[in-house]
Write a protein that binds this DNA or RNA. Structure first.
Lengths: 240, 240
DNA sequence: TATAAACTTTGCGCTAGCACAACCTTTGTT
DNA sequence: AACAAAGGTTGTGCTAGCGCAAAGTTTATA
């Protein structure tokens, strides 16, 4: 992970990149310049690990473009996808929650451009950049909220509802308008969806087939379009 | 919730109460005095709500003695128990994660003595008391870790394993040595355990009965003693 | 001391969704 | 063009664990 290409010397990053992103939105242009000058940029292909669970948290990251998938692997080798992170968000911020190793693995869910900084300057950021800490902890809070929601869903809902809700969340958070509905903005297999909803790829396949027949979704290999969010919401709700 | 009894005027709290508790352990006695003087103390009976999901987060809390149960209630009225908080820990720290309403409900799991402070002085604490922020975020990190672990467990394990692991965690975190094993240190019903493990009280009852026959646990109404942690650990592990 | 309320146990039948298996389709590679 | 590899579909049978039901036990209340 030390082969980071230092784009900053090639393509000088524009300050406007960060100006509107919450943790930096309160800062002066000069401060953003400073932040960018400390950053390393790297382009990742799809499906590439950015860091792994248990690695020492030497850097923290921000998605500039693309999506990150956060996952954990059980002792028995099963994957559980915890979360997707869209562009504009920090991740790998172990330091913020008092850890010195990453608590989960981060893999690119699409091609992605990622900024990163050495963890040592975290405290400097917190002290010197107003709003940075606050906004960061807001993100932590949101992630906790999502985790919590997943626990509740896993504990109380049927597979069909979990999948419906997960799919809705995906298109809400990372959806792209296409003709005929909203499409999940990165490659996503049945296997992936099953690892998000604690079921099997077979069950997902059956569900999507059924939904497609009813005109709720349209899916091709690695692509899912939600064409009737309304009815999907209804499916996700009640206990029947 | 405004009938807080101001014990502080009656029984002046001793500084040694907080001196060894992480978020305060780095502080001078005078600072702890100051903190205590701002605190409200209240004794709660068992099963009493301290705050409810969605309430404005006007105060933050610390368990001085007893246990707190954190839970969420679904639209359909089902409860999911997220977490138990033992004495010495902060809770209701919505402010720390950028919220202004409590994200879950907190109920006493036993008789409890609880300190609380108005949320407005949170920032003062963070700025003026070294180590307070860091230690607090460590707690946030640990809670995230627990949530994460629960998601993984719910997603990959069978009921028997989940219950075994949950029970082990309970006795590890809140266990009290008794003759014949380690006992969960607060009242706990089959219903409670089922709400922690996403199953039914019936299944819990059957499991405990079976385990009792095998000499793994001993349980009476509202009490559970783990007598053979070793074998329980084994049960919690493998996929069979 | 009787009665109610809360908690627990146990039995039985059913079904959601998994495991297994076979086959198909699309994409990438040589 | 042929093959391999990754991803997707669909069928069949099975079972973990739930829903329902009924009865037992302990604790609280009148």
């Amino acid at each position: 992970m030390d082969d980071h290409i230092q784009f900053k010397s090639l393509t000088r990053l524009d300050e406007s990149l960060l100006a509107h992103i919450p943790p930096f939105s309160l800062l002066e242009h000069s401060q953003i310049r400073e932040i960018l000058d400390h950053a390393t940029v790297r382009r990742y292909a799809e499906g590439v690990p950015v860091f792994c669970e248990g690695d020492p948290a030497e850097r923290f990251f921000m998605v500039l473009d693309g999506y990150i998938r956060v996952l954990r692997i059980t002792p028995c080798g099963e994957q559980v996808i915890a979360l997707h992170i869209p562009s504009g968000q920090l991740f790998g911020i172990a330091k913020a929650i008092g850890r010195d190793a990453y608590p989960a693995t981060a893999v690119t869910a699409s091609e992605a451009i990622i900024l990163s900084w050495p963890t040592q300057i975290w405290d400097y950021f917190v002290v010197n950049y107003p709003g940075f800490a606050t906004e960061t902890y807001k993100v932590v809070g949101e992630r906790m909220g999502e985790l919590n929601m997943r626990v509740v869903e896993l504990a109380t809902q049927q597979v069909e509802q979990r999948v419906a809700n997960t799919l809705l969340r995906l298109v809400n958070q990372t959806g792209r308008k296409v003709e005929g509905g909203i499409e999940v903005d990165f490659s996503i297999t049945r296997q992936d969806l099953s690892e998000m909803t604690a079921t099997t790829l077979h069950t997902i396949s059956r569900l999507l087939s059924a939904w497609e027949k009813q005109g709720l979704v349209k899916s091709r290999r690695k692509h899912i379009v939600v064409s009737d969010p309304q009815r999907l919401v209804a499916l996700g709700q009640h206990h029947a």
